[in-house]
Simulated assay, not measured.
Amino acid sequence: MKVQWQVIVGIIIAILIIVFGTTNMGTVDVQLLFWTVQWPLIVVILGSVVAGILMVYCFNYYKARKKKRGAK
């Protein structure tokens, strides 16, 4: 049952991100160390979301691995 709620919430969040991203189609200046590039705002938004998902996944993986080692 918990997984079903996670999937439903994930789908709702994905829809909100898509709607928010498509309404913000302008370009923005992004500074990367010494360079300045212009990217569409949707790329910046999706990149931030993907980076956040990866960080949460890595944290949960580390936490589960630590818990598994403690159980041995």
Rank of each mutant, 00 (worst) to 15 (best):
G70N: 04
T22R: 10
K68S: 07
V44G: 04
M1I: 02
M1S: 01
V3W: 02
V30N: 07
R69L: 11
I42C: 06
T23L: 08
W5P: 07
C58A: 15
V30S: 12
I45V: 09
I18S: 03
K68V: 00
R65N: 13
T36A: 09
Y57N: 14
L41D: 14
L16A: 13
Q6M: 13
N60G: 01
L46K: 03
A64I: 00
W39N: 10
I53P: 01
Q6C: 09
G26H: 15
M55W: 10
V30A: 10
V43M: 11
W5I: 15
S48M: 00
F20K: 07
R65D: 06
Q38L: 01
F20H: 04
V7M: 03
I18R: 01
W5D: 02
I8F: 11
G26I: 00
P40K: 11
I8R: 13
T22S: 06
K68A: 14
Y57L: 15
I8G: 00
G52A: 02
V3N: 09
V9M: 04
N24Q: 10
I45Q: 11
L46E: 00
A71L: 09
V9E: 06
R69I: 06
S48V: 02
V28F: 06
A51H: 09
V7Q: 01
A71E: 10
T27K: 11
N60Q: 12
V44I: 13
K2P: 05
V7Y: 03
C58N: 14
V56L: 14
L46G: 06
K67W: 08
L33V: 15
I42F: 14
V9H: 04
I8D: 04
P40N: 13
Q31S: 15
V3S: 07
W39E: 15
V44M: 05
V28S: 13
V3P: 05
W39L: 15
I53W: 02
N24S: 00
I8M: 11
P40W: 09
Y61N: 09
Q6P: 03
L46S: 02
A71G: 08
V43I: 10
F34V: 13
L32T: 14
V7C: 08
F20Y: 12
I42L: 11
